[in-house]
Amino acid sequence: MVSSEHIVSDSSALTGWYKSSHSGGDQGECLEVAHGYAGVPVRDSKAVTGPALVFSTGHWAAFVGAVKGGRV
């Protein structure tokens, strides 16, 4: 179960959003991540006023490492 402290209901309230330099094309299926917070906010790039999930830096680093390592 996810607690509400790990969700930002309107992600447009946060600043510093960026997409990966590997994002491309016009499919619109990208995630954005924001810098400058204790956790790592992640949102759907198509829903800029929608919710953001906030991951701990350790969990986000593990996820990125798994993706880079081909484990996801």
Rank of each mutant, 00 (worst) to 15 (best):
W17E: 02
K46R: 15
V40F: 01
V48F: 07
G24Q: 05
W60C: 11
I7T: 12
Y37D: 09
V54N: 05
S21T: 15
W17C: 05
A13Q: 13
A34R: 06
G24E: 04
A47P: 01
V2P: 02
V54S: 05
A13D: 13
D26N: 12
V54M: 04
R43F: 02
A62R: 09
H6Y: 11
A47L: 15
S12N: 14
H59I: 00
G70H: 03
G28P: 02
S23T: 13
G69P: 04
A38V: 06
D44P: 14
G69D: 06
A62Q: 13
Y37C: 11
H6N: 14
F55K: 09
G65L: 02
G65A: 09
H59M: 10
T57D: 02
S56G: 14
V33G: 01
S21C: 01
M1N: 08
S56F: 11
S9C: 05
G36R: 07
S11I: 04
V72S: 04
S9D: 06
R43D: 00
V2W: 03
G50L: 12
V2R: 10
W60G: 08
S45F: 11
L31I: 15
K19D: 02
F63L: 15
V8G: 03
T57S: 10
S3N: 14
K46S: 14
S3E: 10
A62G: 10
P51C: 09
R71Y: 01
G16M: 08
H22R: 15
V67T: 03
Q27H: 11
R43T: 07
G28I: 01
L14G: 06
S12R: 13
Y18T: 12
V67K: 02
G28C: 01
A34Y: 05
P51G: 12
V40E: 02
V48C: 12
H35P: 12
H59N: 14
H6P: 00
G65H: 00
S45K: 10
S21N: 11
S21G: 13
D26Q: 08
P41G: 12
A66H: 04
G65Q: 03
F55C: 10
V2S: 03
A47N: 13
V67D: 04
G24L: 05
G69R: 07
P51F: 11
S9H: 09
G28Y: 00
H35G: 10
E32N: 06
C30H: 08
T15F: 05
T57A: 13
S45W: 07
G28W: 00
K19A: 12
H22G: 09
V40L: 00
G50D: 11
P41F: 07
F63V: 10
V2A: 03
P41D: 08
T49I: 03
L31M: 14
H6W: 13
G39E: 08
A47S: 14
V40G: 01
S12I: 13
W60A: 12
V8K: 04
G36N: 05
L14W: 04
G16C: 06
G69N: 05
A61P: 03
Y37L: 14
Y18A: 15
A38N: 06
W60Y: 08
A38G: 04
E32A: 07
V40D: 00
S56R: 11
G36W: 02
A38L: 07
V48G: 15
E5F: 06
G28M: 00
A34T: 10
K46A: 15
A13S: 15
Y18C: 05
V48S: 15
Y18R: 15
T49H: 15
L53W: 01
W60S: 07
